[in-house]
Design a protein around this nucleic acid. Structure first.
Lengths: 220, 220
DNA sequence: TTTACTTGTAATTTCAAAATTTATGGCATT
DNA sequence: AATGCCATAAATTTTGAAATTACAAGTAAA
């Protein structure tokens, strides 16, 4: 069972959802760990049925696996699924970025610049200090902001929504990768390359940089 | 409320899910119609909570909309969402087909030919008789078989799964379009064009034909 | 006539416990 | 030792009712 530092007792359904979501994307459960409704019920001070409802909604987001008559588990991400997730993410981000370049206005460019600025600031700090752990949550949020902003002008709510469910499943592996400093070191140049291609509205180059950046994720 | 020709009483959870799913994709509920758990409870002879669980799982598939404290509704598909769905479907089917052409073997070609043969047989019958209604469920299944087989060799469970949830939301409009005979008349040539391009492993041409075929869906 | 408030009704959500199903451990048999 | 079977324990699923919340109609005030 994960550490129970956060919620002692008595939470509303949305709060329980958010808390479990956060715990799942920050890998506070082992891969494939069983999520017993009785334990969670006691943890959040609610009924077993409420937990059941929350877990169903989390299974929608792909964070929890449900099997009939044998409950819920934190999703185990096999090597094959990791590969599949990456390929699908590349497809969505490439398409979303190209559509954003097509439809995005100066306002979008400004938001993308701002998101990149924050992200690169953190990544510079990582490179200077040589460690990742102390800014991991910050970095994780900034990275999401950048990638989400990149596709935010695509005018397809469906694509964006799908992208988010995929992205959440990547966050899980960030923790286990935190020790691997080399992974984060290369991100600065890759993110800048994506930014510049996007602002230049060079769709071919942008697709290329997105592919290179995301494909490298998979290997580690 | 939709007609209740099928299930008088007493069904298991999976059966209830299947039956409601079928009713939703065959548009036996009006767009935005409220799905009252009490009514459904009496219909299927189970508890309100069981209905609630089924409806949550259907909302995963995008067939049902859930709003906190105000229950479930059959999803209303606006013009904007229809456009979004179509664009997304084009992206997925193009990518899935190209990957299938890359990975598919002779076995895949055989299955695709078989699926097309069945589909074109029905579509010829439609053209001969000049009416659609009497074979609509048959046609709907055959069309799904063809498109699913087309992407079945893509080696991405995620893409295929996502495609299915999108496709189900298209089935809903088939019924309301049944009267529009012209829509179905043009399908024969389009499906054949896709088949031939796929068998020839011509990815550029196949993308083009898929786009033309699916984009025409949106306009009607 | 409109707006705001009150009240009654209906529907959703939560709860605690019963019923069903699956997992576990001991015991006999091969 | 390995396998199959039964009894027990544990966990999931369903139930029916209670509590909460939204909805609608009707009344009073502006």
């Amino acid at each position: 069972m994960a550490d129970t530092a956060t919620p002692p007792q008595k939470m509303e359904t949305p709060a329980i959802y958010d808390d479990l979501h956060r715990k799942l994307v920050t890998a506070q459960f082992d891969h494939g760990e069983k999520l017993k409704s009785e334990d969670l019920r006691k943890l959040y001070g609610c009924s077993a049925n409420t937990i059941r409802e929350v877990l169903f909604r989390l299974s929608t987001a792909g964070l929890v696996a449900f099997e009939e008559q044998r409950g819920f588990r934190a999703r185990r991400t096999s090597r094959e699924r990791q590969h599949d997730l990456t390929q699908f993410r590349i497809l969505l981000e490439q398409e979303g970025a190209c559509l954003s370049m097509k439809h995005g206005d100066i306002e979008w460019e400004a938001r993308l610049s701002a998101a990149h600025h924050k992200l690169s600031h953190i990544e510079s700090e990582v490179r200077r200090s040589g460690s990742v752990e102390h800014v991991l949550p910050l970095w994780s949020n900034a990275e999401w902001e950048f990638h989400d902003t990149l596709i935010s002008a695509c005018r397809s709510p469906l694509l964006r929504e799908t992208y988010k469910t995929i992205y959440d499943q990547f966050r899980q592996q960030l923790v286990s990768r935190a020790s691997n400093y080399g992974y984060y070191a290369e991100n600065i140049e890759e993110h800048r390359a994506i930014l510049e291609a996007a602002l230049a509205r060079d769709t071919v180059l942008c697709r290329q940089h997105i592919h290179d950046h995301l494909a490298r994720n998979m290997i580690s």
